[in-house]
Amino acid sequence: MVKGIEESGIPVVHICTVVPISLTVGANRIVPAIAIPHPLGDPNLSKAEEYKVRKRIVDKALHALTVEVTEQTVFEN
């Protein structure tokens, strides 16, 4: 799906847990997530903490969209 969208020129940031799979499917901007069943959350945390964690990942993803990349890039931090 990433490629089907990005070939149009619209930049895509892929938030996913298993980064090697994302690299294989050809995502160019990749932001690692938390866990497979809850990529943007953590049920072990309180609601407020969990919200913060999710916000941090979305922030990273938004930041990734503002960075020019020429090859597949994983935005770790």
Binding site: M1, K3, S8, I10, I15, L65
Partner: peptide, 20 residues
């Protein structure tokens, strides 16, 4: 993806966040 991307373009979407 190719099908719905046509709608994204028509509606002026600038970027996509895709979660897996």
């Amino acid at each position: 993806a190719r099908e719905f991307t046509k709608e994204l373009i028509a509606d002026g979407v600038d970027a996509v966040i895709l979660t897996s």
